[in-house]
Design a binder for these strands. Structure first.
Lengths: 200, 200
DNA sequence: CGTGTTTTGTATTTTAAAATACAAAATGGA
DNA sequence: TCCATTTTGTATTTTAAAATACAAAACACG
C-alpha cells in the first residue's frame, strides 16, 4: 500500500556509481546525484538514508556485477587456463576502451576507493566490501591458474596463489595506466607481457 | 626586511603531503594541515594562497624527491640493467614496508591523485605534474631496459618502451595491492614474477 | 631608537553542501 | 468513497570548512 515508487532502485545505484566514478565521492553533491539519477532529493534520502549509505550500496552493486562478469570468464570450461586469463585481460581492456570512448576517462571505482582515503576511513564497510571482492577475485584467478597448470597451458612451477596475486596486481596497474591516458594498444602490449611470463 | 618566518617551507610541504596522503585531499581540513605542520592558518594562507595551491606544491615536491630517488637507482652504472630494475622494486617495497610500520597503511599520493578525481579536475596543473612524472619515469626505466639488453641481463626481444610501461604498471599494481593490506613478502614475490618475465 | 614591512594570532565572515521538515500527491484496501 | 500509508516536491535549517580581516608582534634598516 501507499504511493508506488516512480524510479528503479538499481538504476539509481548505477547512475550514482557512475557519478562517483567520474567525479569522486567528495566532489559529487547530492544535487548532482539527484540530477544524474532523475530523482528528487527527498526520494534519495527516503530510500538510501544518506550519501554515505548510497555510496556503499552503489559500490556493492558495482562490485557484484563486476565479479559476476569475471567469474563467468574464469570458470568457462571450454577455455584453457591460459585462455581464461587472456579473456580476463580482454574484459578489462574492453571496459577501459569503452569508458574511453564515452568521454569519461575516469575511472575504476574499485581501485579509486582503495587508493583514495575518504569515506573508506569513516566506513569500515567499504574496507570490508573491497577486501571481500579481492578475496573472491584472487580465488577465481587462482583456480584458473591451477587448471592452467593441469591442462598444460601455464607454467607448472608457480603457486596459483602467487600467480593470482601477480595477475590481480597487473590488472590494477593497467587501470592506473589507463587512467593516465595510455592508449589501449599499449595497454594490450602490457597485458600480453604479463601473461607471457606465466605461459608454459 | 620585515618579520622573519618562523617555519620551514619545505617542512610544511612535507607535513602537508603526508596529511594529504593519509587522509586524502577532500578530507583533510586546513585546521589539520595547520596542526600537522605546526603553523597557524594565517601563515599558511599568507604563504601558500589556498588549500589547492598548497596541495599542488606538496605534490610537486613529493614527486620531485621520489623521482630523484628513482633516477639515482636507474642510472647507477655499477649495476646491470636487470639489477637496476630489481633495485627499483626494492625501493618501492621498502617504501611500502616502512609506511606499513609507521601505522599509516595509506597510501601512494601519486596513484591516489591519478585515480581519485577531485582537485585533479579543477586543476589542470595536477594532471600536468602527474603526466610529467610518468614521462620521466618511463624514460628512466626504458633506458635501464635498453642497457639491460646491451649487457645481456634482459631479454633482447622487447621494446624498451613497452617493457618500461609494463614495469611502471607493475609498480602501480604493487602499490594498490599494498594498500589492500597484502603482506610485504607477498609483494616481493609479485615483484619477482614481474621481473622474471623480462630476464634474459 | 623609531619607522616601514612582513609575519603571526584570533575572531569573523562566507560558502556550499548535507540533511531535514512538511505539505501535496498518489495509490491500495476497508 | 474515504482513509491509512508511502512517495514526492519545495523550502528551510544545519553543518562544517574555506577563506578573510585586522590588530599585535617581530625584525631590518635608516
Amino acid at each position: 500500500m501507499g504511493r508506488p515508487r516512480e524510479f528503479d532502485e538499481a538504476a539509481v545505484l548505477d547512475a550514482s556509481a557512475k557519478q562517483f566514478r567520474v567525479r569522486g565521492f567528495a566532489d559529487t553533491s547530492t544535487e548532482q546525484l539527484c540530477e544524474a539519477a532523475g530523482v528528487k532529493r527527498s526520494s534519495l534520502y527516503n530510500t538510501f538514508i544518506s550519501k554515505d549509505e548510497l555510496f556503499i550500496r552503489s559500490l556493492e552493486r558495482h562490485i557484484s556485477v563486476a565479479l559476476d562478469a569475471q567469474k563467468a570468464i574464469l570458470t568457462e570450461n571450454a577455455l584453457s587456463g591460459c585462455e581464461r586469463l587472456a579473456a580476463l585481460f580482454d574484459l578489462i581492456l574492453e571496459e577501459e576502451g569503452s569508458a574511453r570512448k564515452k568521454g569519461h576517462a575516469a575511472g575504476c571505482m574499485i581501485v579509486a576507493s582503495r587508493m583514495a582515503p575518504g569515506i573508506g576511513d569513516r566506513e569500515p564497510r567499504v574496507q570490508r566490501i573491497l577486501d571481500r571482492f579481492m578475496d573472491r577475485q584472487l580465488s577465481l584467478v587462482a583456480e584458473a591458474v591451477a587448471s592452467g597448470r593441469l591442462d598444460g597451458s601455464l607454467r607448472n612451477d608457480l603457486s596459483p596463489r602467487d600467480a593470482a596475486l601477480m595477475i590481480v596486481s597487473a590488472i590494477s596497474g593497467i587501470r592506473v595506466l589507463s587512467q593516465s591516458g595510455t592508449g589501449v594498444s599499449s595497454l594490450r602490449k602490457v597485458a600480453d607481457l604479463h601473461l607471457d611470463s606465466l605461459r608454459a
